[in-house]
Write a protein that binds this DNA or RNA. Structure first.
Lengths: 224, 224
DNA sequence: TCAAAAGTGTTCGTGCTACACCCATGC
DNA sequence: GCATGGGTGTAGCACGAACACTTTTGA
């Protein structure tokens, strides 16, 4: 190790990922129960240190895969939290990310298996470790803002979905209702989604037309 | 130094600040000429390592003060650049910030003194070191976006300014013209600025009414 | 009196909002 | 046939866009 490195090496870099999904008409976040004092039985967004040869983005991805087993989901850097005293174990700077997981599950490996990895509705979060309350608030705001001016809802929806499903996502996350006819006109005029000419079967009501996203790449569009 | 720290200590944290100002009807960025190989005579946004007991935000502030002598200017975290190979000298993760300096100068200490610290118009940037081209592009996009939905122009304007000064800022940075009457109506309807009932004297034309910002705190507002 | 920038209203079109009823299916 | 969510059109209004001339000053 070179002197110049030794001289300045004092902060460790970690990533924390705020993982969102929608289940049972609620927006939820995946949290892990901590064991280490002083945060025993506090909960935290999954996180981990960045490895020597690994980019920060890649560390966040790895972190996500290790905790949930999901790949290829929406993942975006959020903000870097760098207060000197944010971690009682030492100087840790956290690069926070947020991830979106489709509401049809993509079967998470760890979810049901361990009691210490659980989805919490954003309205009923437990005691949070570190500055994770701040990080989660930040993530929520970003998510809400991005729904309005981008197409990233695709990250929360399954491949095929109805216009009502889509509208529901917006209503659940933004916490307000929209007029059905106006909402549909808006969305369809943006050319973000395409009709599949397929209907959802097996429901005790008129079957919904199914749609899919033209592209599952992030794009800025004024949606609302 | 504890073992757990030793084990993971491999990346150094730095901050880089993209400093904007408007001079001579051009948007400019402050850059520093580098000496170290392999970037001899390349230019870089001012940066520096984060000290042990210092928050990342504070490091960015310090960095800004040391390079320009200005305090209390608009400073916002931009994004964290964490590719493993971004710095040939070692593993350095950079938390990038951008700063806005009022167009009336706030007399920068270092600007004219050293030939190796210079304002460059964003359209005519020199060879840039590291990934600073990417960082600056990112900063530019953020700045443009934020002009549209926040009041942060205040960071670029002096305490007192005319509506034409304000419109000019928008035109210079966004690179398009606005209709004078519509622009004024828009701005005035937002209640972001107040008339000072004072006019600018000493110009060979009709003197402009002067205004100031109601508040110089960042606020999200749809401006355009 | 001239040059230069400041200041000021109205018209037109369009895009957002509000609103209620019929339809298709499974049970 | 009934309960459940799916699907559809229009009218009014508010807001954004386009547009040209008069005013005030210093030189």
């Amino acid at each position: 190790m070179k002197t110049s490195q030794k001289k300045y090496k004092f902060a460790v870099i970690a990533t924390d990922v705020v993982i969102f999904t929608v289940q049972e008409n609620q927006l939820k976040i995946l949290l892990i129960k901590m064991k280490k004092h002083p945060y025993t039985n506090y909960w935290a967004a999954p996180g981990g240190l960045v490895k020597p040869a690994e980019s920060v983005d890649r560390a966040a991805q790895r972190n996500l895969v290790e905790k949930t087993g999901v790949r290829n989901v929406y993942l975006e850097q959020l903000y870097t939290f760098g207060k000197a005293e944010r971690d009682p174990f030492g100087r840790v700077v956290s690069v926070a990310y947020f991830a979106l997981i489709p509401s049809d599950g993509v079967k998470l490996q760890t979810t049901a298996e361990y009691g210490d990895v659980t989805w919490f509705p954003v309205g009923k979060l437990p005691k949070l470790a570190y500055d994770h309350e701040e990080i989660i608030k930040y993530a929520l705001n970003r998510l809400k803002a991005k729904l309005e001016y981008s197409n990233i809802v695709y990250g929360l929806l399954p491949k095929e979905f109805s216009l009502s499903d889509l509208q529901n996502m917006y209503e659940i996350i933004l916490g307000k209702k929209f007029d059905k006819r106006n909402f549909r006109k808006r969305i369809l005029s943006l050319n973000l989604i395409q009709r599949l000419r397929k209907k959802r079967r097996g429901v005790a009501n008129r079957p919904a037309e199914l749609y899919s996203f033209e592209s599952r790449k992030p794009r800025v569009v004024k949606v609302l």
